[in-house]
């Protein structure tokens, strides 16, 4: 049954697809709230020599699919995943933070083949689901006999510019910028800094920048 569903799924994608792409990119993230929590963590723990790095650099992978259309503005869907890690190794104390985002969204793909040959633009509107986790000395931190975690949900808007090489349009480099208003469960600060008193608002904003390459599958 599973195989049958997968067969129909991929057949329908093939029949109706204009383009299917997989991409991988470097992702830069800037969130003032995450920064403040980690900065506070570093401030109030002078006993840890190596400072906890901020969430800055991550990787992002994306699968997107645009549908057949006669006009230049095409539409499709996109599924993405971002991963960030912040690790500080101190004597007897190795603190690692993991930040994951899954993006599910709709994209508008525009390519004007007459004016800007090779270039295309995407606007993506995503729903973002995220999770923040922490390991101390390679063991997951626990709270009430479960893994201590902070989950969240948000929206995301992304603008992307890419370029299709004329000789081989299999590969296309791209850059994108994005913004997300994001709501974390109130454990975020507790997880980052064992505190709830300093940054009370669980709303997080983040900006992101991606630089990567997309592989055209079809």
């Amino acid at each position: 049954m599973k195989k049958l569903i997968l067969y129909f799924f991929f057949t329908s994608l093939t029949c109706y697809s204009q383009e299917t792409k997989l991409s991988i990119s470097y992702e830069y993230i800037y969130s003032p709230q995450f920064d403040k929590s980690i900065q506070t963590y570093n401030f109030d723990r002078p006993f840890l020599k190596e400072k906890q790095p901020l969430f800055i650099n991550g990787i992002h992978s994306n699968f997107n699919h645009t549908f057949k259309n006669e006009i230049q503005l095409k539409q499709g869907f996109s599924i993405g995943y971002s991963y960030f890690r912040s690790q500080a190794n101190n004597l007897n104390f190795n603190n690692t933070l993991y930040l994951h985002f899954i993006q599910l969204g709709y994209l508008f793909h525009y390519q004007n083949s007459k004016r800007l040959i090779g270039f295309y633009e995407n606007i993506q509107i995503n729903c973002v689901l995220g999770g923040l986790f922490k390991n101390i000395n390679d063991q997951a931190t626990q709270f009430e006999e479960h893994r201590f975690k902070s989950l969240g949900i948000g929206g995301e808007i992304i603008g992307l510019i890419g370029y299709n090489f004329q000789k081989s349009d299999r590969l296309s480099p791209f850059i994108s910028i994005g913004y997300s208003p994001y709501y974390f469960c109130p454990n975020t600060e507790a997880l980052l800094n064992d505190s709830k008193g300093l940054i009370i608002n669980p709303w997080v904003n983040y900006f992101k920048f991606n630089l990567g390459i997309a592989f055209k599958i079809k």
């Binding site: 007897n92 101390i136 931190t141 064992d194």
Partner: peptide
């Protein structure tokens, strides 16, 4: 509990 600042200090100071 262990999710607190002194617990981090206790661990790091062995």
């Amino acid at each position: 509990g262990k999710n607190n600042i002194l617990s981090d200090f206790i661990l790091s100071s062995n």
